[in-house]
Amino acid sequence: MKVEVSSETHSKSNNSRRKFLKMGGLAVVGSSLLLYGCSDDDDISGPVTPTPGEPFDLGSGDVGILNYAYALEQLEAEFYTQVIAGSYFASADPEEKLILQDLYDHEVIHREFFKAAITGAVGGDMSKVLPELEFDFSGVDFGSRDAVLGTAQVLEDTGVSAYNGAGARIELPLYLTIAGKIVSVEARHAAAIRSIYLPGNTEFAGDDVIDANGLDPATPPADVLAAVVATGFLTTPFTANNLPAPMVG
């Protein structure tokens, strides 16, 4: 079953961005999801339509999961690229500046790692490597501390839950270990951003995210991708029709 997620069905208010992790009830039926981004100014450009022919599909098996992670890292890397070019960063206090600079470095490194790893995994067949995605962050005021740190928090929280939800879908132990190496860094980011941004002393690992068993969320790819689409940041459509299910023996 194909589900189209388009701009009209999702508010892009700040509130929805903050809460987009909690959209567990969002209707994503079956394993087929067409990611259908939009630009921020629908009146001018209208929704971006898929390029002629088939949109890129993330693929199946480990390559599919790697492409999925690559998409998320592209999103994060592009966000922080704009953060460090923005006016809030320019005048941020030294500690926040250092944190944001590091997050930029780390996410760009993650992005470049996935590009190299996937290229290697598919034997150089670039038709199987997710292309460079385009993003539209025009709805984010990069001069605003609230907008920068609030959006960073959502992206980092989402990254943690996405990797946790992807782990059981990975076949090769090597890739599981590498995903583990990255997710703990994302979790370190999430805690740091939460610690500097949110008012309470316990928000670094807050009760809004971690459950009564002391577990972080693990969100399936379909839900993560739907939530990403809901932000309106993604403008390059792609599909995730063949991602593997969790392997539980």
Partner: peptide
């Protein structure tokens, strides 16, 4: 990797990231 294919992998990952948040703070 030792937990692959078992129902314990995902909960272990869910603890793992919480430990990383603790470490960070």
């Amino acid at each position: 990797p030792n937990l692959m294919g078992t129902a314990f992998l995902t909960p272990a990952l869910q603890i793992h990231s919480v430990e990383a948040k603790h470490a960070s703070e």
